[in-house]
Design a protein around this nucleic acid. Structure first.
Length: 202
DNA sequence: CATCGGATGGACT
DNA sequence: GTCCATCCGATGG
């Protein structure tokens, strides 16, 4: 039996030094945790996507494009890369190490703790699965915002911890979502999810 | 400067 | 399925 303290213990930064295509599935089953003045809320990561640097047309860092937005991707692994898409914030984990601008997008989580808090942030949502089954939805549910840009993921208020029931699921892989206009990159099987988990976005 | 187009989600037909 | 809110980066003049 784990204590709550152990359950929410952050993964060390060296966890993020593994290759991006290995890190993306390795993050499945881990906990994404956010602490705010209102309390802690967390979710089990059930869907991720790898974005691999200069040669991946779907990546913001394609052709090593370095801007104020993508700057954090060029730095050390294990930090949050948040950006705004339309009206929503999305969160990635920086990987690849310094000068290798790669990242893993967190596309869906399963609520794990702080469900009342999550519901209060998603007031119009009726079914539980709709609370966190998409990259914009989970950020809203956990109150992840642009204020978290560049934050180290081994420290409060935003961190990733090893999850419950590790190894009790099957991982599947397939093409990434929402990148139709990226040539061959749209076919790369760099999306990973937990088989049969109802919180996977599609 | 103007214009276009998203790693989206929610309301609606 | 369609429409569009509303923001930022990229591109072209």
């Amino acid at each position: 039996m784990r204590t709550e303290q152990e359950t929410f213990s952050p993964l060390p930064l060296d966890f993020y030094e593994q290759p991006t295509l290995q890190l993306a599935p390795a993050l499945l089953g881990c906990l994404l945790v956010k602490e705010t003045p209102e309390g802690i809320a967390s979710g089990i990561i059930v869907e991720t996507e790898a974005y691999k640097g200069p040669f991946d047309r779907a990546a913001h860092s394609f052709k090593s494009r370095r801007t104020k937005r993508t700057e954090i991707m060029f730095g050390a692994s294990g930090k949050a890369y948040t950006y705004v898409m339309h009206t929503h914030c999305l969160v990635n984990v920086v990987s690849g190490g310094t000068d290798v601008p790669e990242a893993v997008l967190i596309r869906a989580v399963e609520p794990y703790s702080g469900l009342p808090l999550i519901r209060s942030r998603r007031p119009k949502i009726k079914s539980e699965r709709q609370l966190t089954n998409g990259p914009g939805k989970l950020c809203k549910a956990l109150d992840i915002t642009m204020a978290d840009y560049g934050h180290r993921l081994d420290l409060p208020p935003l961190w990733i911890a090893s999850g419950p029931d590790r190894d009790k699921f099957v991982t599947e892989a397939g093409p990434r979502v929402g990148i139709d206009n990226t040539g061959e990159a749209k076919f790369y099987p760099w999306r990973f999810w937990i088989r049969d988990n109802p919180f996977v976005s599609r």
